[in-house]
Design a binder for these strands. Structure first.
Length: 514
RNA sequence: GCCCCCGUAGCUCAAUGGAUAGAGCAGGACCCUUCUAAGGUCAAGAUGUAGGUUCGAUUCCUACCGGGGGCACCA
């Protein structure tokens, strides 16, 4: 990676090399002189000049020039020669271009969606769902061994409520699917009815939406019920008890989580003998750690944020490192209709399902829509507007570039295999600018795997494609000039590779024709 | 009352403490006898308010004003 190569030239481990957006200040920049002057005293400009000298004396062909600017920035310009060489590199690596090794083969699990099997998936599930899927793709490219897991809450109160809704004892859920389930389930036992219905909802509603519409493949569907059947819930409570974190109060059994950073203690076993959701969740947490993951990612809706301290407390109580857990809280989506907010409620039957959304705008647009937004922002969702705007969506802008590329390559007569194409004729500013975007992919993967911010990748895909469109406008690829044509075709081919790899990470289709 | 998140252009969103705050949509002016005009070029347009830390703040801290969510022997 280029950042690492520059870092080696500077030879200061703590130096941060950042990519510069504005070409005037070079391609990469470091503020190490400003930082070190702050710590050690002295003039940052002098320190910067010293480092500049160090870089230049290394004589690397990576460097075009180095400038000291402003209060003490060191700006580094990459040489065209090096950029052209990167095109070759992309051609050689192909679909492997953009893989990095920051994960070092360690095991990570991402648990996401995990919606209760009591009804269809809705908007909010889309947000966490696409995020989790893309995160998994990114981490896999950063050499993490990734598992995608869906936790199925097929036990507990919500299943009983579903059962009661079906037997007519009490109405908790509404919607056409409830009528449908009622016809198919004969039993008057609400427990049985609930379990049977949950199974149907999972296999006939949730899974088809996830596989068929969202294009997500989970490695595991983990059943909450199985934790009860295997005795793991009991064992987890026993273990907590042995460690002294359980006490009895008012006929219920409590987890003394307040001793471990939670605001208050939490019930594990209710006075009526029922175990709470937290009890099985602690067993689930233990199960995850025991499976040997080096890192756990949990993607939850904002309504679960208060749960973080409980799970951290449980991790501590059981003797696990709570810092191995990354909680990602995605804010809820608000449904807007005719300019006004409509409160979504599964119980009242007011919601937009993911199936509806994807049918209206398509899977690619739906994905991109959610992925461009950082998880912590509150998003407004207007289905009507989404429908209108899907015609003019950024996804089409991106896919159009891919189609253009494919069209050029189809038309071109490529030099025979093994012919050495001379890229030194690539000198146009649009050509070099495009290469600068191509070589960012490995950085994007490394950064996103580190901070789990995947909206960066959608932004990148737009920047990359904009740069290509500009190149297309400025530089005719297939022309009389045979040498130039071949060089540009190579650049177009490299662009296709990088764009395809980027779209693969995002899970968005790359059409040859539009 | 306490805790978490958000407030950026008319609208929807970006921006590891950096330099001139970026896009798309909507609106304005241009560019097709040329590899896909679902494209390109130009102009216009924004950090809720008040302080603080810093060489430097959309970003960190404090207060305030708006909006969302959470504070169960629910999940």
């Amino acid at each position: 990676m280029i950042r690492d190569q520059i870092k080696q030239l500077i030879n200061i481990p703590e130096a941060q090399i950042t990519r510069v957006e504005n070409g005037r200040f070079g391609d990469y920049s470091t503020n190490i002189a400003l930082k070190s002057a702050k710590v050690q005293g002295g003039n940052p400009l002098e320190a910067a000049e010293e480092i500049k000298g160090k870089i230049l004396s290394a004589g690397s062909d990576l460097i075009e020039k180095v400038e000291v600017a402003g209060p003490g920035f060191i700006n580094i310009f990459i040489s065209p020669k090096f950029l052209r060489y990167q095109v070759k590199e992309i051609m050689i690596l192909g679909e492997k271009y953009g893989f990095v090794d920051s994960g070092k083969g360690k095991k990570i699990q991402i648990e996401f969606i995990s919606a209760n099997p009591t009804g269809p998936l809705t908007l909010g599930n889309g947000r966490g769902g696409f995020l989790g899927d893309v995160l998994a793709n990114v981490l896999a490219r950063a050499n993490w061994k990734v598992e995608r897991e869906y936790y199925v809450n097929d036990s507990g109160e919500q299943v009983r409520k579903l059962g009661k809704t079906l037997t007519g004892e009490e109405i908790f859920y509404k919607g056409d699917y409830i009528e449908d389930l009622r016809k198919r389930i004969e039993t008057k036992d609400f427990q049985q009815a609930g379990e049977k219905a949950a199974g149907i909802v999972l296999s006939e509603m949730i899974k088809p939406t996830i596989h068929g519409q969202m294009k997500i493949d989970f490695d595991n569907w983990f059943s909450e019920k199985s934790l009860y059947e295997s005795g793991e819930v009991e064992q987890a409570i026993d273990l907590l008890n042995k460690k002294g974190f359980v006490c009895e109060k008012e006929n219920a059994w409590w987890f003394k989580s307040s001793e471990l950073g939670d605001e208050k203690d939490r019930v594990l076993i209710k006075a009526d003998g029922q175990k709470t959701y937290l009890a099985s969740d602690i067993a689930y947490l233990k199960n995850k750690f025991d499976r040997g993951f080096d890192r756990l990612v949990m993607i939850w809706g904002a309504d679960h944020h208060g749960y973080i301290n409980r799970i951290k407390a449980a991790a501590k109580a059981l003797g696990y490192d709570e810092n191995k857990i990354d909680f990602i809280i995605v804010q809820l989506a608000r449904l807007i209709e005719d300019g006004k907010e409509v409160k979504m409620s599964k119980r009242a039957g007011v919601y937009v399902t993911l199936d509806e959304l994807i049918e209206e705008v398509g899977a690619d647009v739906a994905r991109f829509f959610f992925l461009t937004r950082s998880p912590e922002t509150h998003l407004n969702f207007d289905l009507k507007l989404a429908k209108e705007q899907s015609e003019k969506n950024p996804v089409y802008y991106i896919q159009y570039a891919f189609a253009r590329i494919s069209s050029i390559l189809k038309k071109a007569v490529l030099a025979p295999m093994g012919t050495e194409v001379d890229l030194s004729v690539l000198n146009h500013s649009s050509e070099l600018a495009l290469i600068k975007y191509l070589i960012r992919l490995p950085e994007m993967v490394e950064d996103s795997a580190r901070d789990l911010q995947v909206q960066r990748l959608t932004q990148y895909s737009l920047d990359l494609v904009r740069s290509f469109h500009k190149f297309y406008e400025d530089c005719r690829v297939i022309s009389e000039d045979e040498k130039l044509s071949q060089a540009r075709l190579e650049l177009v081919q490299a662009t296709k590779t990088v764009l395809k790899n980027t779209l693969d990470i995002l899970g968005i289709g790359a059409p040859e024709k539009m």
